[in-house]
């Protein structure tokens, strides 16, 4: 019952997010939507995914959109005419081409057709939760039965993520790297005057925030390292840990400000360097496996004691690589987007 309620909430949030005019509220509602999604996924036992969605969907995406809003506009304009007036009395309205009811109907038609095809597809689907569904018996069965033996990782998700499908994860890290470089390409300027987020004077009064941050940040960072290191046993891993570590640095910057351009430059250089380093560690471990005579990313073949030991260390290595890249890209993105210009 509670699941149905949550799903209903999701739909309500989605509709609200799409139909509201104030983009900041929309963004917050999108964050709520993500959080509810996190709860739904936790109830579906997808703990790793929920962890990621909480840090990424509810966290980073919201921050990014707000940063973008602060540098663009908060209100959605145009579309003075609601859908019903478009449909009922189009001749009375002064519409641009894009607003014409015909076009609007076409979009609606496309969406409905897509929905209809999807619903058609559900007819032959196995029931929700069916343990004998093909998806749950072919590959999954073997992973559940043998992955611990073969990789030494008790968390099946991490085992598949880092070992069986480790190459997908390299691709995923490459995607983050691509996004980081793309943002540098699109937004970075040669020289800039930095007055990140909050002015120094105002912050002097926020002694509470500063004190709390000072106490909190080391713990947040420690927790980030824990999440990275503990990914084998429990939910979490390089990605989630990297996000948390990145946020700790962002927290530092928000609380203490960045008085001088020099510090910014240090952060920036460091971000650039680590951005590449993380992926390089990942791809490099793969190359080491090649050199050790195995296949790409075949950690067993690394000359690090027993096969299980090597596999375990290899997985640690790539998780650290992922964590470094994610944290570096987050910091880079933050510095690039959150800067006010004049």
């Amino acid at each position: 019952m509670i699941d149905l309620m949550l799903l209903l909430f999701l739909v309500v949030c989605a509709i609200a997010a799409v139909s509201m005019k104030d983009l900041l509220s929309t963004t917050i509602i999108l964050g709520v939507y993500s959080l509810i999604m996190t709860v739904v996924w936790t109830r579906l036992n997808a703990v790793d995914v929920a962890f990621t969605e909480a840090s990424v969907g509810a966290g980073i995406t919201t921050v990014l959109i707000i940063a973008a809003l602060s540098r663009t506009k908060r209100e959605e304009e145009g579309q003075e005419y609601g859908m019903w007036s478009k449909l009922l009395n189009p001749q009375d309205l002064k519409l641009t081409d894009k607003q014409s009811p015909l076009l609007w109907l076409t979009s609606l038609f496309i969406v409905l057709i897509t929905g209809a095809v999807l619903i058609y597809g559900t007819i032959d689907m196995p029931d929700f939760g069916d343990p004998d569904a093909p998806a749950n018996i072919h590959l999954a069965k073997r992973f559940i039965e043998e992955s611990y033996e073969e990789t030494g990782v008790p968390n099946f998700v991490t085992a598949i993520l880092a070992s069986y499908r480790g190459y997908d994860t390299l691709g995923e890290t490459t995607v983050i790297f691509t996004a980081g470089i793309s943002l540098i390409l699109l937004l970075r300027r040669k020289s800039y005057i930095c007055d990140t987020t909050i002015k120094e004077k105002e912050m002097k009064e926020h002694i509470v925030i500063r004190t709390i941050s000072r106490i909190l940040i080391p713990f947040v960072q420690l927790y980030a390292l824990y999440v990275i290191a503990h990914g084998e046993l429990s939910p979490g891993g390089g990605f989630q840990g990297g996000v948390i570590f990145g946020s700790s640095i962002i927290l530092y910057v928000i609380a203490f400000g960045l008085e001088e351009g020099r510090k910014v430059r240090i952060f920036r250089e460091m971000g650039d360097l680590l951005n590449s380093t993380g992926v390089l560690i990942y791809a490099g471990i793969g190359v080491l496996c090649l050199l050790a005579g195995g296949a790409y990313l075949e950690y067993d073949k690394l000359p690090l004691g027993s096969e299980k030991m090597a596999s375990s260390l290899g997985i640690y290595g790539i998780e650290i690589g992922v964590g470094i890249t994610v944290a570096a890209v987050m910091i880079t993105i933050f510095f690039i987007t959150a800067r006010h210009e004049r």
Binding site: Y164, G166, A295, L297, E298, K301
Partner: peptide, 9 residues
């Protein structure tokens, strides 16, 4: 990749 026999890898 990773030395895993398809379809596992």
């Amino acid at each position: 990749l990773g030395g895993w026999e398809p379809p596992w890898g």
